[in-house]
Amino acid sequence: MNYCLIIDDSRVIRKVSRDIVESLDFRVSEAENGEAGLEACRTEMPDVILLDWNMPVMDGYSFLKALRATPEGRMPKVVFCTTENSLDHITRALEAGADEYVMKPFDRDILAAKFQELGVLPASHSA
């Protein structure tokens, strides 16, 4: 079973995201900021990470740069899930190593499509 880590400072967003991702047959864990996310990755590297941009302690951009700087941190697919929709933010995220970029609010159909594009979800799980 694939493993997804959700990193977002909003408890509500983590809950909604968890419900969606679990409905796609993923194991899920959560972190409330980038620092907690890095700790979770040290314990077990996920297959895919849903990552918020704006968080206290360590933001998503800083998390992604730190993750990708580690040898094992190249493996997970990272999907930025954020309200930041400027071309500058998207470009910075992709240059830092994000694999996809999704605008909030998102739904099951959007995440299922992105996960299929990234190769972490079989087509049999289409929305």
Rank of each mutant, 00 (worst) to 15 (best):
T83K: 06
I20H: 02
S23Q: 08
V78E: 12
R18W: 03
Q116R: 14
T43Q: 12
A66N: 09
T82H: 12
E39L: 10
C81P: 01
F26I: 02
G97D: 05
A113Y: 14
I6G: 05
P105D: 02
L50E: 06
L5M: 10
C41H: 05
D107A: 01
N54I: 05
S126D: 03
V102I: 08
A93Y: 00
C4S: 11
K77T: 04
T70K: 11
A40P: 09
L50T: 10
E44Y: 08
L38G: 08
D88C: 01
D25H: 14
M58N: 01
F26V: 05
L51S: 06
R42Y: 10
Y3D: 07
L118G: 08
F63T: 05
I90A: 12
V79P: 00
F106Y: 15
M103S: 00
I110K: 15
A36H: 09
G60N: 09
D25A: 15
E72H: 13
L118I: 03
D8E: 00
G37L: 02
D9H: 00
V57E: 11
A112Y: 08
A69N: 14
I110C: 15
C81A: 13
I13L: 02
M55S: 02
I110V: 14
D59R: 06
S86W: 04
A127E: 09
Y3Q: 07
E84M: 11
R27P: 00
N33H: 15
V16C: 03
K65I: 09
I49C: 06
Y3E: 03
E84F: 07
P105G: 03
